[in-house]
Amino acid sequence: MVYFILKRLFQSIFVMLAVAFLSFSLFRFVGDPVSQMTGVETTVEDRERLREELGLNDPFLFQFARFTGDLLQGDFGYSYRTRQPVAEMIADRIPATLELGTVALIISLLVGIPAGVYTALNPRGFVTQSILLTTLVGVSIPTFVIGIMLIFLFGVQLGWLPTFGRGGTVQIGGWTSSLFTVEGWRALILPAFTLGVYQLTLTMRLVRAEMMEVMRSDYILFATARGIPWRRLHFRHALANTMVPVITIIGLQFGGVIAFSIVTESVFQWPGMGLLFLESIRFVDIPVMGVYLVVIAFFFVLVNLAVDLLYIAIDPRLRVKEAA
C-alpha cells in the first residue's frame, strides 16, 4: 500500500516536472524573452546585460533547474503585458475558478450518479430512454452554445439571473468568495450549470455502463440467488463496486472541468484563471501561459492523488495483503 502511494507520488512528480519543462520551454523558446521585456530604444549593451541578469546565457539544464527552483519558491516571474508578478495575477483569479469548478463538479455528481444508477437498473423503461436521448443531445451541444442558450433564456428573456461576472463577493482572508451572498449564488448558477452539464452526461453514462457490467457479475448473481434484499443488492453490492472504476475517471474528468471552465468563463465573463489564460494567449503573454499550465497540472495531479487515496479506502484488495 505504501509502495502504491509512493509510486503514484513519483508519477505525479514526473508529470509536474514534465509540465514545468513544457512551461520553461515556452518561456525560453517561444519568442525572445529579452525583446519582450525591452523596448525598441534599448541598446544592444543593455539587452546583453539583461540577458546576463536573467541567466539566459547559462547552460540549458541549469536554467531549467533555476526555473523549477523559482517555481517551488512561488516566484513565477512577471507578465509581459501588465508587468505585474504572475503569482499575484493567478492568485487573484484562483478562487473564482475553483468555486465554479467545484460547484459544477458537485452538480454533475449529484445528478449524474443517481441518473446513471436509475438508467442501469431500468434499462428498458421509457424514462431511461428519454434520459439517454437527452444526455446524448447534451454531449453533442458545445458548452458555449449551452451557455448562450441559458443566457438567452434566463438572462435575456426571463431576466431572472445575471449573465456575467461574479455578483456579490466576500473577502475571507485572501480568498474572494461568491458562496456567501445571495447575489453571488445567483451569478454562479448559470455558469456552474453550463460547466456541469457536460461532466454530468459523462458521469451518468459511465456510471450506467459500469453498473450494468457489475450487475452481470457472478457475485451479484450469487447474492440474488441468496435472496439478498434488492435495495441492499443494488446499493451495498452493485453501486460500491461500480464506484471503484468510476472515481478514477471522475478524477481524470477534473481536467475536463478546468479546460471547459475556460469556455464557460469566456461566455459569462467570469473573472477566473481561464479568462486570464485566454487574454494571455491573445497577447502572447508567455509567462502567464506557462504558469497557468503549471497551476492547472498541479491541481489535476493533486485531485488524482486524492482519488488514489479514496481508491485505497474503497478497495480492500489494495489495502489488505494477500494471505493463504
Binding site: S217, D218, Y219, L221, H237, A240, D315, P316
Partner: peptide, 14 residues
C-alpha cells in the same frame, strides 16, 4: 445456489 468460479462469486469489497 453454488457457482463455478469461487474467484468471482464473492463480492470483493465486503
Amino acid at each position: 445456489m453454488i457457482f463455478q468460479d469461487p474467484q468471482t462469486s464473492l463480492n470483493p469489497l465486503m
